[in-house]
Write a protein that binds this DNA or RNA. Structure first.
Lengths: 178, 178
DNA sequence: GAAAATATGTCAATATAGCTGACATAAACT
DNA sequence: AGTTTATGTCAGCTATATTGACATATTTTC
C-alpha cells in the first residue's frame, strides 16, 4: 500500500513566495496533531483496561528505559511537579510495576527500577507504538527513518537536544548490555 | 547551526537484525514525545496569559482553518464529547473569538466562524508553531519538508488519512481565496 | 559538630479537560 | 404526526496537572 503524497509543496510554483511571506506551515502543524493523536491512542487502550492513564505510561516508559534513574531526573524529563508524579508513581509501585532502591552512594536517593512485570508492560506498549512506526516506515523509502529522526530532533528546543540524544544513546547502551 | 545526526541507524551494521527482531524503535518513540512537547509549548505560553488552554487552541485552530464548519464536524475531528466541547466553545464565543451563524440550508446547524479577533489569535499561535517548524527545516536539506509530511501522514490511521488530507487541502483552498 | 542544602515524600486546595448519563429544543425528514 | 438529527445543557465523576506548606533523612559546607 502506497500513500499518495499530501500536496507536493516542494513542486508548488509559489512555494518560495509562501516561504518569504512566512505563511503558516499548516500541513506540518495539522499532520503533527493527527499523527501524535494516533500514536498515543494505541497504548491508551491497553492502559485504560489496567486503570492507568498516559501519565503512568510516561513514568513507566522512562524508568524502564533508564534503570536506576533518580526521582529528580524523572521530574525534569517529564517536566511536572513531584506532587503530580507522586500519585502516579505510588500506584505503579503499589501494583508492582516499579520498585525503589536506596542509592548506594547517596542514601537519600530512591533509584527507580521497572520490575519484570513493569518491563513486560513497558515493552508491550512500546511494541504497539513500534508496530505503527514500522508500518509507516515500510510504506516509505529506506532513508525515511533517518529523515524522521532528523526532523523530529530539529523540532526539539535546541538547548534540550543534547540531553535527549544522551538519554536515547545511554538507554540504548544499557539495554544492549543485557 | 548544524545538528549532528542522532545515531545513524541506517549505517548500523546490525540494523537488519534489529528490524528482524522487531526491537522497539526507541529513537522515534522518544523523539516524537519530546518534539510534540516542545511543539505545543509555544502556544501554551500565550494561551495561559489569556486564561485559555490547549483545548481552546484546538477549537480555535480548526474553526479558523475551516470557516463555517458544523459543530458535529468539530466533534469528530477533535474526538471529544459535545459536553467537553461545550464549555470551551462557550468561552471562546463569550469572549468574542468565535461566532455561530445559523445554517442557510439547515437551520438546526450552528456554523462556526472565527471573528477577526479569533483569527488574529489563531494566526499568532500558528505563527509560533511555524517559526519552530521553519527553524527546523532550515537546518535540514531541501526535501525535509516533503519527507516530514510523508512520515507524519503514514503515522496516521490509514482510515483517517483521506479525511485529514481533504481537511488540509480544503482549508488551504478556502484560505487562498481571500 | 552545627548549619545549610539536597532528595524525597506528603497534605490540602485548586484548575483544566476530559468523561457518562439524562434531558431539552428546534428543525428536518418520512 | 412521528421520528430522526443537530445542538445545547445540567449534574456529577475522573485524571492529570498546579501551588503552597511542611516533614524527614541525608549529605555537604563552614
Amino acid at each position: 500500500m502506497t500513500i499518495s503524497p499530501l500536496r507536493d509543496r516542494t513542486a508548488s510554483k509559489d512555494q518560495a513566495a509562501s516561504r518569504d511571506r512566512g505563511d503558516p506551515l499548516w500541513d506540518i502543524i495539522e499532520l503533527l496533531f493527527f499523527a501524535y493523536r494516533d500514536f498515543v491512542s494505541d497504548p491508551d487502550d491497553v492502559l485504560s483496561k489496567l486503570g492507568f492513564g498516559r501519565a503512568h505510561h510516561r513514568v513507566l516508559h522512562f524508568v524502564n528505559r533508564n534503570p536506576g534513574m533518580k526521582v529528580a531526573d524523572l521530574l525534569h524529563i517529564l517536566n511536572i511537579t513531584k506532587q503530580s508524579l507522586g500519585r502516579v508513581l505510588k500506584q505503579l509501585i503499589d501494583q508492582g510495576y516499579i520498585v525503589q532502591k536506596e542509592g548506594a552512594n547517596d542514601r537519600r536517593q530512591r533509584l527507580l527500577y521497572a520490575t519484570p512485570k513493569g518491563e513486560a508492560l513497558a515493552m508491550k506498549l512500546a511494541g504497539l507504538q513500534t508496530e505503527r512506526i514500522a508500518r509507516a516506515l515500510n510504506e516509505l523509502d529506506p532513508g525515511a527513518h533517518a529523515a524522521a529522526c532528523r526532523f523530529l530532533t530539529a523540532m526539539i528546543d535546541a538547548e534540550d537536544r543534547g540531553i535527549v540524544q544522551k538519554l536515547i544513546a545511554r538507554a540504548d547502551q544499557s539495554r544492549s548490555q543485557k
